[in-house]
Amino acid sequence: MNTAAPKGRVAIVYHPGKVELDELKAAVAAAVDKHGWGEVEWWETTKDDPGEGPAREAVARGATMVVACGGDGTVRAAATGLRDTGASLGVIPLGTGNLLARNLKLPLNMEEAVDAVFGGQDAAIDLCTAAVTRPDGSSERFDFVVMAGVGVDAQMIVNTDDELKRKVGFLAYGVAIAKSLAGGNRIRAEYRIDGGQPEKTRVHSLIGGNCGELVGGLPLLPDAQANDGIFDLVFIRPTGVFGWAQIAGRLIRQAGEKVRRRLTRSSAPVTGGAQDLSSLRYLSGTHLEATLKHPEVFEVDGEEIGQVTAFNISIDPGGLVVCQSSPPPVEEPGEVA
């Protein structure tokens, strides 16, 4: 038993449909004793509140760490509740995508994740916000930690068969991606970055992200880092089957180049400028304003939030503290392995 003074109070925010509660409680009790934490409170998420309220209330009651146990929706909601509070977010990934955990190289095994959370160290990452306008003129704000946008990412979620997802896990997304590649460059948008001149474009997908890895390890935004104070954007504009083949080849090349530059400790970006294809354009910034000609389905961190006619993306540098493995991974937060 650890006899040192307790590190602090912990709140476990869990999705009841994702966890084996007795197993999780046993693992948490062992990790708390091993690493010397104090009181643990348990908060169950609901359909009406997937984690934001419990996370905020737990901090108000004195929790210094809130552990999100569930899928990407639970993690995103808890992160929203912890924004700029200084309390740390622990992640026990129990979903299908587990996007933040994959991008930050956190353990995906439940018991290993529990031990890493209670024995880890805190690091600040950025938190993004998407302010969207609905077709009826109403507006909403959604914080996110990985990616948001319109096109293949959002369409993939709409096209994912829930029954297939339950049977084969993240492989179901492969089927959904294949369905989502159809439709051509039908999204018409006007956008500007960091207050610059407005530009018009026609794309298949427009996605902004603070982390770069999509489901299945696809490095959609290979230069994205979770703690660099900017978000990355990708404009996907294929021309037919050849265009998609060209994009696929470039993504594979970029993944390899990412690894090579990490091994050689090169800080040069993988994307941008003359390196980009006309069908795969990359930009970065701290504020994006985009207006769509027609309503499109919007996605934040793997969750479809309905149709929008406009969206702004902004970033809060260091707005979220995340408990990471100790010692930390070799990769910088947000890098693709």
Rank of each mutant, 00 (worst) to 15 (best):
L171E: 15
K179T: 05
G249E: 11
S205V: 02
L82N: 03
Q246N: 14
T133I: 10
S314K: 13
G70L: 09
E52N: 00
K165S: 07
C69I: 05
S314I: 11
F144E: 00
L24K: 09
E296F: 13
E23S: 15
A29V: 06
D316N: 15
T201L: 12
D122H: 12
L106C: 10
P50I: 02
R261L: 08
V132A: 06
S325D: 07
I207M: 11
A189M: 13
M1D: 12
V40S: 04
S205I: 01
V28K: 00
R202H: 09
D126Q: 07
L277I: 11
E111N: 08
S266G: 08
N2G: 10
F242Q: 11
M156T: 15
A310I: 01
N2W: 11
G195Q: 12
A31F: 01
G195N: 07
F242K: 09
C128Q: 03
D232A: 05
T291Y: 01
G53D: 03
T64H: 06
A248H: 09
R250W: 00
E296C: 10
E299W: 11
I305A: 10
R202F: 10
V270F: 01
S180H: 02
T45D: 04
P295H: 07
V321F: 12
A131M: 05
E332H: 15
L100D: 09
G86E: 02
A63F: 01
I177Q: 06
D316H: 13
G73N: 06
F235N: 04
E199F: 12
P50Q: 07
E41M: 10
F170T: 11
E257A: 12
N98F: 04
N159G: 06
